[in-house]
Structures are given as C-alpha cells and as structure tokens.
Design a protein around this nucleic acid. Structure first.
Lengths: 341, 341
DNA sequence: AATGGCTTCCAAAGCGCTTTAAAATATGTA
DNA sequence: TACATATTTTAAAGCGCTTTGGAAGCCATT
C-alpha cells in the first residue's frame, strides 16, 4: 500500500492525503478524518526512504558503534542507548547505527553523515584532542557529544558530567578521613573522562602536598577482570595505598574481590570510592560492603541528549549548547578512616 | 555532491557513472577508473535514501530495542549487538534500531518492516508462543530469530543454543556429585530460554525421581540484585538447597554474595552452575571461586546471525534455516560433592 | 451578474538514485 | 564498401513521497 493507492481508494489526490496525514491546515476536518480512518484500516505507512528523499528528514539519529573482533562490548554503551531510546520512542525517531572499527571512527562518522540517512549525530567515547570535532563542525548537521574533548576549545554542543569535580570531591572526602596513600583505577588513558578524573584527584592531592604515584595508577578497559588485576598490583606495593578511586563499579567489582582475597576489609583497611553510572545490573548499595560512589545516571544523560537532538531536528525550542552535570557524592560503607600504621 | 554533479564533472551520463560504481560490466575499464578516481577526490557518497528508493535495498538490518522509563537495559543486548556489528562492518551494512515499549513489540516490528528502510529483521527475547512469528512470516522480508518460541512450530529461521540440554547436563553433573536438593534461578518466566532451561533441569531430576520445588525456583530479571534476593530466599528455607542452577553469570554475582554473607562456602556448602554468555566484563574464571558454567558465546551468535541475514539479503549463498548450538559444560571450583548432613 | 476572498482540492515538479530501452561508436566479416 | 555484431554510452522513466503554484467551488459584497 502506497500513497497513490491510498489516494485512489479514497478518490482524493495524493497531495490532499499527504496533507491530511501531515497536519496541514488546508484540508477540511471531514476529509482528514476520512483519510485517518482509511489509514487505520489499510495499515498504510509512508515509506521512510521516500519521505527522506522528499524532505531531507525522516526522524533518525545516527551513531557509530565501535566494534571489531577483539573489541569488548561495553555495558555503558547499552545503558546509554536505552536512555536515547526512551526519549526517541516518544517522538517516533529511530537510530541508525553504523558499526565501525575503532581506528576508523572519524571516517565512519563522515560516511554516516553524508550517507544522507540520518538527521543528526550522536558521538561518544570522546578523547583528548578528539579529531572528530573538526569534522563534525564542518558538517552542517546537528550533533551532540557525550563528554568533552580535553584540550579542544569547548565551542561544540555537549553534555558532560563534571568528572574533575567528582573525583576532586571524592579525594577530599578521603583526605579528611586521614588517607594519604592514594591509588587510581581509571579507564583508558586517552579518553576524556579518564583525563579529567585523574586531574581532579591530582588537584585535591596537590592541595595537601601529596602526589599520585605512577605505580598507583592504572588505565585499563573497564572490566571486572582488569579491576582485579590492577588491585592485586596495588596491594603488593611496599607502600600499600589505603584509598582507591575507581572509575567504574565494574572495575570495583574485581577490585573488591582482590581485597577480599588478600584478607583485607573494605572500609577499614582499604577505602574505595567508585564512579557509579547507575547500571541497573550492578548497584553499589548491594555490594557486600555498600560502595561509596560519585553518581550520575548514564541513562538520564541519554534521555537528555536525545531530547536536545530531536528538539533541534524538529526545531522545537532551543537548548543550551553546553551542559555540565554535577555528580552526587554518596557515602556508604566502603569508605572509612585511614588505618593507623 | 550528488550523482548528477559528479557525472557533469566527468562529462559522462549519470547512467555510466552509476554503472561504473556498481560494478556493471558494460563500462570500459578506462572510464571505470576515471570515475573511481573522481569519487576519491570529491568524496562522493551515494545518498542511501535515494538508493533505497530506487532499488528497494540499502544494506540495513532492522531490530527493535525494548525500552521504557522503567525498563532495565540488558547487558546481553549490547554484547549481541557487538557480534552483529562485527559482521555488519565487513559488508558495509548498518542497523536501524527502533526503540519500542516492550508491550508494543509486535506493532513496532511491523512498523519497522513496512517503513521500508530495512532489508531484513532480527528478533530476540523470544517468548513461548511468540505472537511475532506469525507476523514475521506474513511479511515476505528475510528474518532470523535468536532463540526459539516454545510451543510454536519450529518452521522459521532461527539460531538457538540447546538450553534444555545445557541445564540437563548441568543437573546431571550435580546429581552425580550427590546433590538432591536443587534450586533454579532463572530469567523471566515467559521467555523461551527460561522455559527450556527449566525443562532441562526438571527432566534430569525426574530421571532420579526428584522434583523441583516451587519455592526453589525464581524467575526474575537477570540482575545482580535479583540474584542476591533470590539466593537469600533459598538459604532461609528449612530444606536448604545445595545445588543451584543459575541462568546468568550476572545473577550468580548476587547469588554468591548472598552465599558469602550467610557464611557458607561456594563449592562446598553450595554448588552452583551458571550459564555463561561470555560477557567480557564478567568472566566466570575470575570469580573468587571460579564458576562452573554452561557456556555459549552470545557474541558469536550475533556474528553468525548477521552472516545469515546479510547473506540472504545479498543472495550470497544459502544458509541452514535452523541452527541449534550445543553449549559447553566447563567445570570449575563452584561445584563439589554434596555436603553430608 | 460580476467581483473578490476563502476554503478545499489538485497537477506536476522534484528529491537522487537505478535501470530499461535505445542510440552512438567501434570492431569484424563478406 | 557495406553490413552485421559487439561494445560503450545515453535519455528518460520510475521508486514514493512532499510541496509549489494554481484551479475550482462556494459564499458574501458590490
């Protein structure tokens, strides 16, 4: 069933039917209803490709998904997507996902943009000096980045959390508790959030004349396994750290196992604060020792970015270009006073 | 830059340029190279919407993503998507993801199909007597189902793992170890895999004249938290189960915490076998007591389904309609002889 | 009856591509 | 040289929609 057939069925022109469907005023309420009823009965749906060709728009937001045979999938990606989806479904928007090798992301993004089947772009996994920014700006297509790019002028539309403040505050709490030996379990070093969280921690330490030792820093993929490995390494150090900042609850999972295996008590021998993206499968309050966290919902960020993206495409209202969300510092049992020694 | 402009630039007709690009034989090698070079220089990319309108195809596979304000995102979804993506990127295919309320899945699937912007459909989260099957069959669009639908004639293209055999074998192992009191921590009861795993367990128990008690069965979303809750319930039973079958390593995570909190030893007081989808962030060999598992890679399944879907769309070779993969039973330390009591 | 202003509808062009049918050019044969 | 055949190129139609620029119908005013 296409427009032509539907209009013939109704004895109307394609124009009229199209207008009735798209809410144009120059069609009587009587005929509009007649059209709508026919649509219900026949199950007619406009062909999106044709619609896009005619209008240049078809209600889709594009994103590239890094993937490769060795490449680990990322829980955070799924959770964020759920947020985007939650908003998209309200506006009948869909996603076009272009899988791409992580080394090929900038080219993939360009391909996606000029393929002409997305109205707007979403970009994540931002790095320091991210090369995608220049390309995006040259594109004249709406986009929003999740995160920022350390070292680039912040003149692009983004939504980010204040990673620096988050880890600064977390470190301050631990300092107040008397800790002096810190370690950081971070995400991959080139990623923006990792850079900023590290900076936040360093800033707080610096205020007390402390330093973050090189061997008390790990930058890894954020998996359970890497968390375990990193923590094991920390625990074997001569000057064992007592305060750990951890970029993800997933990393914390492994880290805590290492703590337990070493026969140490979390919240007594070792204090740990993790960043919590509010992953539904891993709640910090349910850990055997509930985790102190810096919290910000990844999913909420997804919803908000979808709002901005869709709003811009539909030209419905205007939005702030830059948003920086504060994280919450939630104190639970994994943090305690520094052990005497 | 569009075809017309490109052809004018080259002094050729659109036809010739189009043919050169699409590998048709009726164009000389000389001109083909000339065209290809111009494409490189100008960065021309055909408009996918126009291509789709003209050919009916544009290299996309469609899927609906269940999402709603309360709806939890699912790690398994992300991991599967990574598998699909790994294959899709090799063929320059992309995904069109339609987010939809879980209650609206069959309608969403239909909308996606007749929207005319996908070439094939992928369907997951199969239920018993799944209503989507009838719709899919009526659609004349290629599709592959991940999983099966218990109670429906298996005459549709699917790829599934042998869930029944997996849990049957797992239960047999535990029976051989002397266990007689079993419990099952399963996924949502209406899902096909949950039905079959339960059946597998029941079949094995039945051979020994044993039964699976109602209060030793839990059907929940597969999260850490639910695992903890379910296991706590089991441990409070008068006749405490000693053998646990668990549908996910994520559930196991919570379950094990409950075991530890109760002061019990995994692999001694309680034996547990979990199904392992090979999620990169949660490796069963890294659990503090390494987990015995039934294993099958979700990601590999994604790759395979993408192969079949893309192969069918491109009409490149033929594929088996139905595939049933065996799982591996991998014995680690979380299973041991039944405790004397 | 003629004019103007609304409302309601329509014919046709155009979005950027593919593909059919036909034309132009090159090659081989009698 | 003329003709048939093969090769290379092109003009134009069509995919299903939106939208521009009119036209037709209806009413109230002059």
């Amino acid at each position: 069933m296409n427009l032509k057939q539907l209009s013939e069925l109704l004895g109307l022109s394609q124009t009229t039917v199209s207008r009735a469907l798209n809410g144009y005023p120059e069609v009587s309420e009587a005929t509009r209803e007649r059209v709508l009823r026919a649509v219900k009965e026949t199950g007619y749906r406009p062909n999106k490709a044709a619609q896009r060709l005619a209008t240049g728009k078809a209600g889709s937001i594009g994103l590239v998904m890094p993937t490769a045979p060795g490449h680990q999938s990322d829980v955070h990606f799924g959770e964020f997507l759920a947020g985007l989806g939650e908003e998209a479904v309200r506006h009948d928007f869909h996603f076009v996902i272009m899988p791409a090798d992580p080394d090929d992301e900038v080219a993939a993004l360009r391909r996606l943009a000029i393929s002409g089947n997305v109205d707007a772009l979403f970009v994540a996994y931002m790095r320091g000096h991210d090369p995608r920014l220049a390309m995006l700006k040259s594109l004249s297509m709406p986009f929003v980045v999740h995160g920022r790019s350390f070292g680039s002028e912040p003149d692009y539309p983004y939504l980010d959390i204040d990673n620096e403040a988050a880890f600064y505050e977390a470190a301050r709490l631990l300092l107040q508790l008397g800790h002096t030996r810190f370690a950081l379990m971070n995400g991959p070093a080139h990623l923006d959030f990792a850079i900023r969280r590290r900076n936040g921690l360093i800033a707080a330490l610096d205020e007390r004349g402390l330093e973050l030792a090189e061997d008390c820093t790990s930058h890894t993929v954020m998996s359970d396994e890497e968390g375990l490995i990193a923590m094991e390494r920390f625990l074997q150090l001569a000057e064992r750290p007592t305060a750990i900042l951890c970029s993800s609850t997933v990393l914390a999972l492994g880290a805590i196992r290492a703590v337990n295996q070493a026969g140490l008590k979390l919240g007594e021998d070792i204090s740990l604060i993790a960043h919590d993206d509010v992953l539904p499968l891993l709640k910090p309050e349910n850990f055997s020792v509930p985790l102190t966290t810096t919290r910000s919902s990844l999913r909420a960020a997804g919803v908000r970015i979808a709002q901005r993206l869709i709003g811009t495409v539909k030209q419905a209202g205007s939005f702030p270009e830059q948003e920086l969300w504060k994280t919450e510092l939630i104190v639970r049992a994994s943090t305690g006073a520094a052990p005497q020694s």
